[in-house]
Design a protein around this nucleic acid. Structure first.
Lengths: 106, 106
DNA sequence: TATATTTGCAACCGATTAGTTTCTTAATTA
DNA sequence: TAATTAAGAAACTAATCGGTTGCAAATATA
C-alpha cells in the first residue's frame, strides 16, 4: 500500500478531516458527525492519516482524540519549494521589465 | 472522474513528470524516455495533468511540447497557507517562551 | 506517392480505493 | 453486574487507477 502524504491529501474527505482536527483534537465520532459517511469510513481515513504520521492519537479512557501533526505538513511545503523558486524568479523578471519601462518613461 | 490538483500530484510518476517539464518544455516521447513505462502511460498522465490545468501544450508540427503551468502550483501553496499560519504561530509561541527565559536569566 | 514518425484514443486487466455492514473489544454507567 | 457507548477490524462491493496492447490520424521524409 502506498502511504505517503501526497496520497493522504488526495482525498477531499481526508483534507476536510485535516482541516477539522487542525483546530482542536477530536474523537472519531465527533469527526464523523461532520460528514455524510459512517464512523467506520472516517476511522479508515484516520488510520491512513495516522500511518503516514499526519495525525497523532491521544487515548483518554475509551475515547481517542485525534489531532494534526503540523510538522508533517511542512513536507508539502518543502516539496513546493522547488516550484516556489520558479514562480518567484518569474515574478522578479516581470519586476525588472516593469522598472525598466518606468526608467524609459523618465 | 475526480480531477483536481491534489489528485494530480498524488502519483509519484506524475510528480516526476512535473519536475521534468518544470525545467523545459518536452514532448511525450522525450518524457517517456525517463521512465520505465510506455509512452501511452505517460500520455495518460499528461492528459490528466492538462485536464486540471497543471500543464499546457504547445503544438509544433506533429510534436507537442508540454510545459508546467506554474501558476496552478500556487493553489497548493494557498491551501497550505492555513496550516502555515498554525506552524508559524507555534514557532512564535516557542520564540516567546525562549525570550522570556532569557529575560529571567538576566 | 509510399513510408516512417509522433501522438492520442479505446479497450482491456489487475490492484487499489472509499465506502458499506457486521462483529469484537474495552471502558463507562445505571 | 448488566447495559450502553466508543472505537477498531474484517469481509465485501462498486468504482477508479495505472498500466498494457492495438489502432487511427496527422505530419514529416524518402
Amino acid at each position: 500500500m502506498r502511504r505517503d502524504i501526497f496520497q493522504a491529501i488526495a482525498d477531499p474527505t481526508r483534507r476536510a478531516i485535516i482541516a477539522l482536527i487542525a483546530l482542536q483534537p477530536m474523537t472519531p465520532n465527533a469527526i464523523a458527525e461532520n460528514f455524510h459517511t459512517t464512523r467506520q469510513a472516517v476511522s479508515k481515513h484516520l488510520r491512513m492519516l495516522t500511518e503516514c504520521d499526519l495525525v497523532k492519537q491521544e487515548y483518554q479512557g475509551r475515547e481517542i482524540y485525534y489531532s494534526l501533526e503540523i510538522e508533517k505538513m511542512k513536507e508539502i511545503d518543502q516539496w513546493l519549494d522547488q516550484y516556489r523558486k520558479i514562480w518567484e524568479s518569474r515574478f522578479n523578471q516581470l519586476d525588472q521589465v516593469l522598472s525598466t519601462l518606468k526608467k524609459q518613461k523618465k
